[in-house]
Design a protein around this nucleic acid. Structure first.
Lengths: 133, 133
DNA sequence: CTGTATCCTGTTAGATACTG
DNA sequence: CAGTATCTAACAGGATACAG
């Protein structure tokens, strides 16, 4: 395992092969279905309340939404504001850091728009080819 | 659920909230631990044989490596070349499409290098704060 | 309204053993 | 060498019920 770190690892302090490396944690973040959805939702619609997010993302369970929100808050991706009114009110908004993550997602979006057709074509071709000789 | 697609969905034909949308499939792709590792490995070291990949990525099981490789081949991300020598030899190399995915990963890398310190700081601050009043 | 706690199920991935 | 097949353990995630 150490061999991997040395042979392929961090040419300049960056090693995606090391699970503890920041890059891996970021991949975990943007790779997470709900995280990316929350980032996009907040990025597109500005600050939202818990119930609004719940409605927007429709399909997310309370458990996953809360869990995702907590994790993102912990990572400094969003700000959680509690207003102690009679029925409690909680607003969530992207921090500048969270907004910058939205930019990364935008790059992903661009790649998808530019190349996803190729992927579909490749997939169709692969599935159509004879099941080996 | 349909409400979500309409309210937040594809302002211009792109809807990350739709699981069948290309963007989601891409997220699934780059979010996958092993896919990103294989892309980086092949991108950094050029064509590699199965056994070399297995060694490079150290920690991946045969099952996951094969599964990942098959999926990537299907998606047109890499090319699989079988040389029917006495002991069979199989080489894997990135296609132009796969190489372009490496570029996306590069953006991710840059974001990580630029902001991951902030994430760590936020996390430390969050973990250090009192467990609520 | 905004969560927390619990149970329960499906998927996933690692280990292991075997084949062309 | 380069896989395939099978079994099982771990865990993520959904449903549900309840609380501040």
């Amino acid at each position: 395992m150490t061999a991997t770190q040395e042979s392929l690892g961090a040419p300049r302090g960056f090693d995606a092969f090391d699970a503890s490396c920041p890059s891996r944690r970021l991949l975990d973040a943007i790779g997470d279905k709900w995280v990316s959805l929350v980032v996009v939702a907040l990025g597109l619609r500005g600050p939202l309340r818990y119930s609004q997010l719940s409605a927007q993302i429709a399909g997310v369970s309370q458990k996953m939404l809360t869990q995702t929100l907590r994790g993102m808050e912990r990572d400094g991706l969003l700000l959680r504001t509690v207003t102690p009114s009679v029925p409690v009110r909680v607003d969530y908004e992207l921090t500048p850091l969270g907004a910058s993550l939205l930019d990364v997602l935008r790059h992903v979006k661009e790649w998808a728009e530019a190349h996803m057709g190729e992927v579909d074509a490749a997939r169709a071709a692969y599935d159509a080819r004879p099941p080996a000789s």
